[in-house]
Simulated scan of single mutants.
Amino acid sequence: MLQRTLGRTDRNVSIVGLGTWQLGADWGDVDESAALDALGASVDAGVTFFDTADVYGDGRSEAIIGKFLRENSSADVFVATKMGRRGPQDPAEFTLANFRAWTDRSRRNLGVDTLDLVQLHCPPTPVFSTDAVYDALDTLVEDGAIAAYGVSVETEAEALAAIARPGTASVQIVFNAFRLKPLDRVLPAARDAGVGIIARVPLASGLLSAKYAKDTTFSADDHRTYNRDGSAFDVGETFAGVDFATGVEAAQAFAAALPDGVSPAASAIAWVAAQDGVTSVIPGARNRTQAEANAAAGSLELPDGLDSSVHQIYDEFFRAALHERW
């Protein structure tokens, strides 16, 4: 699979990675054997980038990745984790002492001395403009606890604030065919600064697979059930913030824009990966089949006219409701 340099890390990662939120929690039950199988299938298909977080299943996702790495010592995988959501979402909590405690826990979970990349996990907006936060992150690099740091953001303004900091290696942001705002300013700013872009929620929580109907339901412990109103965390993480019924209609329009036999999900992933400035796209997977299908998108040639169709669908269904929100 094609590799790109992840911003200021000087490390190459596959253009399609693996998001591992599903392996921890909030997407229904995924047993450990299925999780390990998804990781193995991804690596076998050329994926060299895993994205996780210390709160996915209270560390379960990190621990499963750690087990996979121990059992597959020859696998050349770059692992990005996140920190900052284990305590109160108060800017005062983002201190060097807490950073050390959080990263020490992640290092134990993953079984490594130095974390490849640690991302601030969608912290309160003032954190992105606090000098002491970046000083603390620089200290962790100097100490050897982490090799590099980045941020995971909800909004354009947060992304731009982080990109302006010289130590920021990468920005992770929601970006898909239903959420086009990063094209305006975030991707150009990241390109100019040499900052990597990690695109999350590329399938809009599965909507862009075009497999859902308006009456599709999800299990009670799936965020697609309990977070549709944003009561648990930012609603932009669930179906990319779009109204479910509207998203189902838009997904059918997206599928109709593709030639017969071309997978909507693979096309949606490949479209994101093709955008100038994107380093890696991180769809999630609950099993081997999903992992293999996602990775295959890394070699998919985009159908003619798809980019134009994406913009037309966005303008028709989403721009008015979403574009200024994040």
Results as ranks from 00 to 15, higher is better:
2 L>Y: 11
3 Q>A: 02
12 N>W: 00
17 G>M: 14
18 L>D: 05
23 L>N: 05
26 D>L: 01
27 W>A: 07
31 D>K: 07
36 L>F: 08
38 A>E: 11
39 L>S: 10
47 V>L: 13
57 G>A: 07
59 G>I: 15
63 A>D: 03
64 I>H: 05
74 S>M: 12
75 A>N: 07
85 R>W: 02
99 F>N: 03
101 A>V: 00
107 R>L: 09
108 R>I: 06
110 L>Q: 06
114 T>S: 02
115 L>E: 12
115 L>D: 08
116 D>Y: 00
119 Q>P: 05
126 P>C: 13
127 V>E: 06
128 F>M: 04
129 S>Y: 01
134 Y>C: 08
137 L>G: 07
138 D>G: 01
139 T>F: 04
141 V>W: 03
143 D>F: 01
156 E>G: 00
161 A>D: 14
162 A>Q: 03
167 G>S: 08
169 A>F: 04
175 F>C: 09
177 A>Q: 09
179 R>K: 03
181 K>I: 00
183 L>T: 06
186 V>M: 09
189 A>M: 12
192 D>C: 05
194 G>Y: 13
199 A>H: 14
207 L>H: 00
212 Y>C: 01
213 A>D: 15
213 A>V: 10
214 K>E: 15
219 S>V: 15
220 A>R: 05
230 G>D: 11
236 G>S: 06
238 T>A: 03
238 T>R: 09
247 G>K: 04
249 E>C: 07
249 E>I: 06
257 A>R: 11
261 G>K: 13
262 V>M: 14
263 S>W: 15
265 A>Y: 12
270 A>D: 11
270 A>W: 08
273 A>K: 08
277 G>Y: 14
280 S>D: 07
281 V>R: 03
284 G>K: 12
290 Q>N: 07
292 E>W: 13
296 A>R: 11
300 L>R: 05
302 L>E: 01
317 F>A: 02
324 E>K: 04
326 W>C: 01
